[in-house]
C-alpha cells in the first residue's frame, strides 16, 4: 500500500517538498523560538495574506507577491521596532493585523473569497507542482547554506545580544538577516500547511526538541527529525484516510510534544542519557 502511494508523482513531490520545508522551518524556527519571537512566523504569514490577495487581484502568481509583501513588511516592522523601541509581541500584533486588513480590502475589491484564497489559507502539499518543488529545494538549500556559514555568529547573537555586540558581531545586520530568512521560509512553507497553521511548524518541533537536547546541535537535529517525521507521516496518513494534510501534520507534531511533556513530567527525560545515545564517542 505504502509503496503504491509512493509511486505517484504528486506524492513524491509532496514528500520531497515536505522534507525540505520541515528542515527549513525547524532550523529557522529554532532561532525565532530562542529569540522569543515564536509568533513572528505567524505574523509574516498573515502579512503574506495581503500579498496573495494582491497577486490574485492583479493576475500575478500569488506566491511571488506574497514573497514581496511579506519580506517588505517584515523588514519595515523590524526597523520600526528598533527605532521606536516597540516590544517584540506588539510588533508581531501590528504586522499580523495590518496584513490581514490589507488582504481583506483587496479581496473585497476582487469580488470576495475564492477557492484560490482557501488553498493558501489552509495549504495542500499534495497539489505542489514540479516547478514549486524545484523552487522549494533551491530556497531550502540556499538558506541552510547561509545559516551554516553564519552558524556561530547567529547562535551568539541569539544567546546574548549585548555580549555578541561587544565581541564585534554585527548583531543588527544578523537580526535583519534572520527576519529576511524567516520571511522567505514562511511564504515557501505556506503551500504545505497554509497561512493559518504555519507557526506550528516553526514552534512545535523546536519546543519539543529543547526539552530533550543538551546542546544546540543536538536540539537542531532532534527538531529536524520531529518535523520531518510529522510531515512525512502526516502526508501519508492524510492520503490514506482522505483528511486534510495540514491539520494532520500539525496534530502529529503536537502529539510528539504531548508525549515528550508526559515523559518529562514523569522524570524520564534526562539530558545525559540523550547525550549518550546521540554522541557516545564524546563522553
Amino acid at each position: 500500500m505504502t509503496l503504491e502511494i509512493l509511486s505517484y508523482g504528486f506524492m513524491q513531490r509532496a514528500i520531497v517538498s515536505g522534507i525540505a520545508i520541515a528542515l527549513l522551518c525547524s532550523v529557522v524556527g529554532l532561532f525565532l523560538v530562542l529569540r522569543r519571537y515564536s509568533l513572528f512566523g505567524d505574523a509574516i504569514a498573515h502579512s503574506s495574506f495581503g500579498g496573495i490577495a494582491a497577486g490574485l487581484l492583479i493576475g500575478i502568481y500569488p506566491l511571488w507577491t506574497a514573497y514581496i509583501v511579506s519580506l517588505a513588511s517584515a523588514l519595515i516592522i523590524t526597523r520600526i521596532k528598533q527605532k521606536f523601541e516597540i516590544s517584540g509581541d506588539a510588533a508581531v500584533a501590528v504586522l499580523l493585523s495590518s496584513g490581514i486588513a490589507f488582504g481583506l480590502i483587496l479581496i473585497s475589491l476582487s469580488g470576495g473569497f475564492t477557492i484560490d484564497i482557501f488553498s493558501f489559507l489552509f495549504g495542500n502539499i499534495l497539489l505542489v507542482s514540479v516547478e514549486d518543488t524545484v523552487l522549494i529545494l533551491a530556497l531550502t538549500g540556499s538558506i541552510l547554506i547561509v545559516i551554516l556559514l553564519l552558524y556561530r555568529q547567529l547562535i551568539y547573537s541569539t544567546f546574548n545580544e549585548e555580549q555578541a555586540k561587544v565581541s564585534g558581531i554585527p548583531v543588527e545586520k544578523l537580526n535583519y538577516l534572520i527576519v529576511f530568512i524567516a520571511g522567505i521560509t514562511v511564504v515557501t512553507a505556506i503551500q504545505l500547511v497554509g497561512i493559518l497553521l504555519i507557526s506550528a511548524l516553526f514552534v512545535i518541533p523546536n519546543v519539543t526538541a529543547i526539552m530533550y537536547g543538551r546542546s544546540f546541535k543536538q536540539t537542531a537535529i532532534l527538531s529536524m527529525a520531529f518535523a520531518v517525521s510529522s510531515i512525512v507521516a502526516g502526508i501519508l496518513i492524510s492520503y490514506v484516510f482522505d483528511i486534510t494534510p495540514s491539520g494532520t501534520i500539525v496534530l502529529l507534531a503536537i502529539g510528539i510534544m504531548a508525549v515528550t511533556m508526559s515523559l518529562k513530567s514523569l522524570g524520564l527525560i534526562d539530558h545525559s542519557q540523550i547525550r549518550q545515545s546521540i554522541r557516545p564517542h564524546q563522553r
Binding site: 543538551r214 546541535k217 543536538q218
Partner: peptide, 25 residues
C-alpha cells in the same frame, strides 16, 4: 568582557563548550 550577571534564556540548549565557541572562527 564579563557582564554583571549572565543574561540568557534559562533553557537555552547549549553546552558550556558551545557557549565558549559562539562567535569564534
Amino acid at each position: 568582557y564579563v557582564p554583571q550577571k549572565p543574561v540568557f534564556e534559562k533553557n537555552f540548549p547549549a553546552t558550556v563548550k558551545e557557549v565558549v565557541r559562539m562567535g569564534l572562527k
